[in-house]
Amino acid sequence: MSDGVLLTGGAGVLFAVLAAVALASAIAVVVARSPVHSALFLLLSFVLVAAIFILQQAEFVGAVQMLVYAGGIMVLFLFVVMLVNPGVTRSEKSFQHQWDVAVVLLPIFLLPFLYILGTEKLPDVPVKAEAFRMVGTRVVGNTEAVSWVLFRDYLVPFEVASVFLLVAMIGAVVLGKRSLEKMD
């Protein structure tokens, strides 16, 4: 690792371990045969990513990751797993019949990426985490720094995102609802 990277020493080792396990469990989500195992691996990967955020001194983002992803979204997944009866989907192989194509294409795209990301000298990241929590000339807490960015710098994109979520909700209702005649 070059100079100027945020995590060095023990923290760096911890990061490497957390990141490796998070990646491995993310792959396990896709590979696992049982949906219940997939869901549990997903939970593990969410928790580990939250830990990485906290390691980077982004406590607020870490807490949100735990509450929203490991909490809320996970419950949603578990409901789906309960409702669709995992035993039926266990033997499904419909998504695995293009292995040969994937094996050929993956290196073609992956190797240039790895080459570029490996050889590139990345811009210097400030060693002090405080630099990310500067508002004006003041160093504030992580939560406050996030709120400054969210509700000041990117207020309107944030609001546009709320319209986006509304559209997602309307879309789910419109497409998911049974037609009017059938309900009568």
Binding site: Y154, P157, V160, A161, F164, V167, G171
Partner: peptide
């Protein structure tokens, strides 16, 4: 950021 969020709003609709 604003470009991406706006693009997604258009696309999802």
């Amino acid at each position: 950021i604003s470009i991406y969020v706006a693009l997604e709003l258009m696309a999802l609709s």
